[in-house]
Amino acid sequence: MSQNIKKSVADIPEDTIVVEVQGHSNFLVTVGNTGHQFMLELKDNKTITGIKCPGCKKVYVPPRSHCPTCFVKMTEWVKLSGKGTLDTYTVVRYKEQYMPKEPPYAYGVIKLDGADTGIVHMIGGVDLNKIKVGMKMEPVFKEQREGSILDIEYFKPV
């Protein structure tokens, strides 16, 4: 090798460079048998179901396999009317990547009758300025359902 490597580095600038890099991902989410059962009820029967803990008797929506308090397996399914009460909400007016729909839109926590936990979903069929905590709500299902939480298009005031 014959190159002269004693070249000075003094002429090379030092100011900070910021590089833009992109991260790509395409993950798969496995719903699991418990979640699958819930999704099938939404899709086939337009029914929201909860799951009941044999220990503390709490009913969880959406369902999960184990009770977070008792750590026991839950297997008892409870069919719910779908009606509930709006616990809290907000109106989204800003926009960013990967939002479920175009702003402005409202979403909130709806505590379903017969369940002990609230479900997070979008609120529709109402003037965004007229949403009130404590309103009675009911789900509006999509015509074309595929077995997803978005088979419920939104909750609207009764």
Binding site: Q22, G23, H24, S25, L28, V29, V31, L40, E146, S148
Partner: peptide
């Protein structure tokens, strides 16, 4: 999608 679904994402850093 009731068994499993994908969610592609592109994020710029």
């Amino acid at each position: 999608p009731s068994v499993a679904f994908r969610y592609p994402r592109v994020i710029t850093y």
